[in-house]
């Protein structure tokens, strides 16, 4: 490609794309080694070509590009052999065709990020159906694949204004199915990372749809067994929401208290960490509304027989801002609030 004269470049590009639309069987690792190497080299050329050349992304190439990408990435994901697969403990099954797949994803990313990329042309091919299949790939067990998908979907969301509502809706469906039906989806953390950047960019005042997402999806997500895998991303999304609209604080805190884990101390420690992140950015006016139910729970945690839970709850007292919030509300507090804080004293004793 790099030696071809400009006049022949587009034809050659087309041929290379068609050549790379042949999918190889990597489960049989000795089959077709020559063919696999030819495709790998061709993919490398395509990545280089799109990354370095300007003015080559002419309209007729778009369908060929999307076809090659689709043929390679859209596939039925292998069922997880071990139904008891514990993402925390077990090593994930890596994608055998990664030597090709990685280059296809790399090419797709360079294509999206090319200065010549035109969403107005691409939207004929990157449509709702395409995006839905892309989202289904997030269930891949291969973390390398999910990392590429995350960056790609982030770019697609950014560049295709017309697809944004659809993408949010489909993410909603994936999360709801994950919470209430399957409790199995490998890409929850990656999707939450994208959503963190979307929430961060929300215009004010927040649309009702977005608040519904917080209430109906983000808060119930705390109840899922595999919370530890995506809790950091989930907590970040929640805090982003509160920084956008502090009036949601009471709803979030009461939601977390409603889903407070009763039998899983690891989750309790995570939620205490999230509570502290929220308290770090809380408005004093919001703190007053939630301090009583919140500190009832904190008092229970202090008295927890599990030392890590008790320790994490006591750690709140290492946070000067929380201390100042509590102090401000001790003295002039109305009668019933003064009863909330002494309960802490009992727990501390």
């Amino acid at each position: 490609l790099k030696d071809a004269p400009v006049s022949e470049l587009h034809d050659l590009l087309c041929k290379k794309l068609q050549q790379c639309s042949i999918v190889f069987d990597f489960l049989d690792c000795v089959a077709d080694l020559k063919g696999k190497e030819i495709k790998r080299a061709a993919l490398n050329e395509l990545v280089e070509c799109v990354a370095t050349n300007r003015g080559i992304l002419i309209e007729p190439l778009y369908p060929e590009i999307i076809k090659m990408i689709s043929v390679n990435i859209f596939r039925i994901l292998p069922p997880s052999e071990n139904p008891e697969f514990d993402p925390e403990e077990d090593e994930p099954n890596l994608e055998p065709s990664w030597p090709h797949l990685q280059l296809v994803y790399e090419f797709f990313l360079r294509f999206l990020e090319s200065p010549d990329f035109q969403p107005s042309v691409a939207k004929r091919y990157i449509d709702q159906k395409f995006v839905l299949m892309l989202l289904e790939l997030f269930d891949s067990e291969d973390p390398r694949e999910r990392e590429y998908l995350k960056t790609i979907l982030h770019r697609v969301y950014g560049k295709f204004l017309g697809l944004r509502a659809y993408i949010r809706k489909q993410c909603n469906n994936i999360f709801l199915r994950f919470i209430y039906e399957t409790e199995h989806f490998n890409g929850v953390a990656e999707l939450l990372e994208i959503l963190g950047s979307i929430i961060n960019g929300f215009a004010l005042p927040l649309k009702a749809e977005h608040k519904q997402f917080l209430v109906r999806v983000l808060i119930p997500l705390h109840s899922v067994k595999s919370l530890s895998i995506f809790h950091a991303q989930l907590a970040y999304c929640v805090v982003q929401f509160l920084e956008k609209d502090a009036t949601l604080t009471e709803h979030v805190i009461r939601g977390l208290l409603k889903y407070w884990p009763k039998t899983c101390t690891q989750k309790e420690v995570m939620l205490l960490g999230e509570i502290e992140e929220i308290l770090d950015v809380i408005e004093p006016s919001q703190f007053v509304k939630i301090q009583e139910p919140l500190f009832k729970q904190v008092a229970r945690c202090i008295a927890s027989p599990h030392f890590q839970v008790a320790e994490r709850a006591l750690y709140f007292w290492n946070n000067e801002y929380i201390l100042s919030l509590v102090e401000d509300n001790c003295h002039g507090a109305p009668y019933h609030l003064r009863h909330a804080l002494p309960r802490l004293q009992g727990a501390l004793e």
């Binding site: 770019r155 994208i194 950047s197 961060n200 982003q240 000067e320």
Partner: peptide, 30 residues
Amino acid sequence: PQKKKKQKLPKSPAPHFAMPPIHEDNLEKI
């Protein structure tokens, strides 16, 4: 002496995985 009160964090620190924000109103030139 009046203890200098720690103010609430102006903005939560972005974790390592934070991605560039995508503004709702306009097309992102990423």
